[in-house]
């Protein structure tokens, strides 16, 4: 084989192997992660996930619950907690104006307003899904068992998006059956504040 051809084949092989290795490393770094399209309004905000900076557009994120914050000079910071799963192909952050420059930007074009509303709708939809994800127990409530006897319902905790459980219309054994029923459905009541409105406590530990 001609010396020039050999050198050409060798260089080609090295470049090819380099590309293959790069591709494999990129693929491996994405193992177990989910492609999520991150969008902000206005464009170009800085987004952090669990305190570390992440880019915009398609990013590969480990599944699970993450705390995000999007910020841009002249705009308010949008903090959101999103649970990333296969059902979260896109997440959005919408910042409010916090300076005359930002207000000017908003007034510059009606398409900005449309984009903002689009992303706000997506964010609200995600918040709803997030609520149901964080409080999956609401999918099986309210529930009553006259034989128990018990009724289980839920209420909303003040100041956060969590629910608490209300076990009522019950007796001492019914209350234990209600707690067991929740476990049988796959929801550990230990993760929720549980109230028993029919129960009159005989003893209390001072003020906590």
């Amino acid at each position: 084989m001609d010396r020039r051809v050999r050198i050409f084949v060798l260089i080609f092989a090295i470049i090819f192997v380099g590309f293959v290795i790069f591709g494999i490393v990129v693929l491996i770094s994405r193992i177990g992660k989910i492609a999520v399209d991150i969008q902000t309004f206005p464009e170009g905000a800085v987004v952090t996930m669990d305190g570390k900076s992440v880019g915009l557009g398609t990013q590969y994120i480990s599944p699970g619950t993450h705390s995000f914050a999007a910020s841009k000079t002249g705009w308010t910071t949008d903090k959101q907690t999103y649970t990333i799963s296969k059902n979260t192909p896109k997440i959005a952050f919408v910042l409010d104006t916090d300076s005359p420059e930002a207000t000017d930007y908003m007034e510059r074009s009606p398409t900005f307003q449309v984009k903002r509303e689009e992303l706000s709708a997506l964010r609200a939809d995600l918040a709803g899904k997030n609520f149901r994800k964080q409080n999956e127990v609401v999918n099986v409530l309210p529930y009553s068992d006259v034989a128990g006897p018990y009724s289980i319902d839920y209420g909303f905790e003040e100041g956060n998006s969590r629910v608490y459980l209300i076990i009522s219309d019950s007796t001492p054994s019914g209350r234990q059956k209600a707690l067991q029923w929740l476990k049988d459905q796959g929801y550990d009541p230990i993760n929720y504040r549980v109230t028993f409105p029919d129960y009159s406590p005989l003893v209390r530990l001072g003020e906590r």
């Binding site: 905790e157 969590r162 608490y164 209350r175 707690l179 009541p189 230990i190 993760n191 929720y192 504040r193 549980v194 028993f196 129960y199 406590p201 003893v203 209390r204 530990l205 906590r208």
Partner: peptide, 14 residues
Amino acid sequence: KPVSSPEIFLNSVS
């Protein structure tokens, strides 16, 4: 020192 009230069921939120 007791760190919980006497409760029917103890949960991690309270």
